[in-house]
Amino acid sequence: MAVSAHPYAGGRIGLATIHAKERAIAPPFRRLIDAKVVVAPNLNTDILGTFTGEVPRPDALVETSLLKAELVFRTMDVDCAIASEGSYGPIDRLPFNAGGLEIMAFVDRRRGIRLVETMTTHRTNWRLMAFEAGDPSVPQAVKSLGFPDYGVFVIRGSVGGYTVKDLATVDDVVAAVDREARRSEDGKALVVADMRAHRNPTRMKVLRALAWRLARRLATLCPRCGAPGFGHMLSPRGLPCEACGEPTHWIDFEVDGCACCGHAVARPRSDGRRTAPRLSCSACHG
């Protein structure tokens, strides 16, 4: 299919960001569907939550990313919008390891298309460390986070407290730690990796990979109505047990569909499995 045949070719897509995410998101959309991603002007996306917890998210990640995309239509005369949300921190089962989840939402208000793509990652420098005033280990700890190429926050006392951002030098960080630790009730200040995209090159790479995934999805047109975004919608469970044939919790097959006309096609698992291991069957091991 020629790029010029795509419904979005030559059009503009608004992007909700104040953290330079266009550097990661614009290239895939230009390359795959010939659409120009433009940052929405006069839009403060921090009203829907901040990484430091000063402003809590109004809803879960998926819902918040869709809300953020809808904000684009307040300041731009476009039909399509993109927004992303991310969450980083310790992994529940591995508290000494960090991971992240990125959500990217696309809304086409004219066609009624609302798509969300996700990506989990272990590629992150996220870390949280507590220091008292005068702690001599602060400079080395900050450098271990990749500073100054990677940003850091200094937070008074606890997450959600007063936050110092956009620190430029190690001396600035040390001074902020000393000052905020003395002002906090517990005598400590937190140093946290800055996960805002423009201050975190690793997160920017994850966003770029996710943008390629979303752009590829939109480049796929519905075979029935020609709308963009035909792709994975459901993963029904119930793959039969290899021993007794009873349904298990394993995914049985995949369903690709269209958000416009509702056309859907079932396809087998990508690994070709037709039965689930006996050990996964509750009927055999109930």
Rank of each mutant, 00 (worst) to 15 (best):
V3M: 15
V3D: 07
Y8C: 03
G10C: 00
G11K: 13
G11C: 08
T17Q: 11
K21Q: 10
R23A: 15
R30C: 05
A35E: 11
V37T: 12
A40D: 04
P41D: 08
N44F: 06
D46T: 06
L48C: 06
T50S: 07
T52D: 15
G53F: 13
K68R: 11
V72A: 05
C80H: 08
I91M: 12
D92I: 12
L94T: 12
A98F: 12
L115K: 13
V116K: 02
E117K: 14
W126H: 15
A133D: 02
D135M: 08
A141E: 04
G146N: 10
P148C: 03
D149G: 09
I155H: 05
S158K: 15
K165W: 00
S184H: 07
G187L: 05
V191E: 08
D194Y: 04
N200L: 10
P201E: 06
A211Q: 03
A215Y: 00
A215F: 06
L218F: 05
H232M: 12
S235D: 09
S235G: 12
P236R: 01
R237D: 07
C241F: 02
A243H: 08
P247L: 15
W250V: 11
C258G: 07
G262N: 03
V265S: 11
P268K: 05
R269W: 03
A276Y: 09
P277R: 02
L279E: 13
S282A: 10
